[in-house]
Amino acid sequence: MKVSFKVNGKSETVEVSSDTPLLWVLRDTLGYTGTKFGCGKALCGACTVHLNGRAVRSCQTQIGSIAGSDVTTIEGLGGNHKVQRAWEALDVPQCGYCQPGQMMSASALLSTNKNPSDEDIDAFMSGNLCRCGTYPRIRAAIKAAAKMS
């Protein structure tokens, strides 16, 4: 089927089967490879993107269900987003594979909670796995980003 939607503000139309996860449309069809595949079951958060401003797992989001929606990927954060600046200032990434998903979750958290507590961070970020164990810096970077304009 043909589906039209926006990725990072740009209109896209793809022709794929309607059950194709948004993840694979982004990666394979449109070339937005910043969004990562980790588990395919919404267990790791590596594929997190924003759908109409809310964080979703793109591996569980069928393309047929999002016609007309706005999708933001890590490429669309722009590079100067406060979460990216905080991540860079604290050198959060190690292998870096989970970090696009971590930053998409963190930016979604900060969009609704300007000053998240440790408990807020735990609750919102526990769906994003990091096998390298960058958690102390993720926590610190979210707090640092919260203080940025």
Binding site: E75, P93, G96, Y97
Partner: peptide
């Protein structure tokens, strides 16, 4: 000293194996 790969890892442009085309 900052990591030399942070900027691309923060922007989603670091090339992992799975990103190869």
């Amino acid at each position: 000293q900052k990591r030399l790969d942070t900027a691309m890892k923060v922007r989603g442009t670091a090339g992992f194996g799975i990103d190869t085309v």
